[in-house]
Amino acid sequence: MHRSSSTVSRPVTGRGPVSGAAVAVAVVFLALGVLGFIPDVTSRYDDLGLAGQHSGARLFGVFEVSVLHNLVHLVSGVAGLALARTATGARTFLIGGGAVYLVLWVYGLAIEQDSAANFLPVNDADNWLHLGLGIAMIGLGVLASRRR
């Protein structure tokens, strides 16, 4: 049977825009995790610590990072790519991950930045970023998974 050139057949994946949004966010996390290990992108790279508030390294010269912090970004990215395979998984990654970043925001506000409790580490720039990420991820998870 011959199909006309005006008919385009596309496979039905069941994923939709929410999976695309999850992949985009996951790729950003992967990029941030990798960039955190690159000198010159990360200022004071020689001060990059395993964890804790004594890591003096700054991603883009602004965001406090450590090996643990970079690994958290990499794990978030890998989890996002894995969960983006289905619409339900993608939505879970975006909304659940957004909730985790809101918890990190509250954590960053609640702790003393010079204390041992600042194990990731986080600074004021990280706190604002975590708030923005949390809101954006939850918003993407809700809006991109709406049925049209």
Rank of each mutant, 00 (worst) to 15 (best):
Q53S: 12
H2F: 03
V23W: 12
F60G: 09
S115P: 00
R44C: 07
S43H: 10
V8S: 06
A79S: 14
A24I: 02
V8F: 05
L140S: 02
T13S: 15
A79G: 09
L30R: 13
G77L: 09
V34P: 03
A136E: 00
F119S: 11
G56D: 05
V67E: 14
F60E: 02
N127Q: 03
E64L: 12
L30C: 07
Y45D: 04
G14C: 03
S9F: 08
F37Y: 12
G108A: 10
D40T: 15
F60L: 14
V106S: 02
L102P: 11
L120E: 09
R3L: 15
G108F: 04
E64C: 04
Y45G: 02
G97E: 12
H69V: 11
G56F: 15
A125D: 02
G80S: 10
I138F: 09
S19H: 02
V23N: 05
L94G: 06
E64R: 11
T92C: 10
G61T: 03
A136K: 01
P17Y: 09
F119I: 14
R148G: 13
A117E: 05
L35V: 05
G56E: 06
V25C: 03
G134M: 01
A21W: 09
S4Q: 01
G56T: 06
S9H: 03
D124F: 13
D126F: 07
G108V: 08
L59G: 10
G96F: 09
I38N: 08
A125N: 06
V100E: 00
P121G: 09
G56Y: 14
T88D: 13
W105E: 10
L129Y: 07
G97D: 14
G80F: 03
G36C: 11
V12C: 05
V106W: 07
L68F: 14
L81V: 12
N70G: 03
S66W: 08
Q113R: 15
L68E: 02
L143P: 00
V8P: 00
G141P: 02
A57Q: 02
H54K: 15
G134F: 00
A51G: 00
D126A: 08
L50I: 14
L35T: 01
E112I: 01
V122K: 03
Q113W: 15
A116F: 13
V23S: 11
E64D: 15
